[in-house]
């Protein structure tokens, strides 16, 4: 039998429990909405302007660098599993693989993209 069934069951039960708790809160809690209560909470000060604040482009760069390393790590997992049984050449292959990416990190660093300005 497919072992992912268990994972699916964990997801179902893991969703049911918080839903149950939130529904219980909804049932037992009072419901008296008013415009002031519903307004955005900004420490008691009247909200000014649009919620849509523009974000730094830096966030995007960090996400991109993260994506590259994420994919790299995923490639390294099968390599790591077999490493103990393979010889030194597999280790060297992995080191070359990582070194190439470290070059990328150093390039990003030198261009000043890793600094939060």
């Amino acid at each position: 039998m497919n072992e992912w069934i268990y994972v699916a069951l964990f997801m179902i039960v893991g969703a049911i429990i918080p839903i149950g708790a939130i529904v219980a809160g909804f049932i037992f809690g009072p419901k008296k909405p008013n415009p002031i209560k519903q307004s955005t909470y900004e420490c008691g000060i009247e909200p000014v302007g649009d919620v849509w604040v523009q974000f730094k482009a830096q966030y995007y760069i960090f996400a991109l660098v993260f994506l590259v390393f994420d994919v790299e790590a995923v490639f390294l997992f099968p390599w790591a599993v077999k490493l103990g049984q393979l010889g030194l050449y597999a280790v060297v292959e992995g080191i070359v693989f990582i070194s190439i990416l470290i070059v990328g990190l150093v390039y990003t660093w030198r261009k000043g993209m890793l600094e939060w300005s």
Partner: peptide
């Protein structure tokens, strides 16, 4: 790995 490097350099 080289491809990933190219992606990173291009983005930067």
């Amino acid at each position: 790995s080289v491809l990933l490097l190219a992606a990173m350099v291009g983005a930067v």
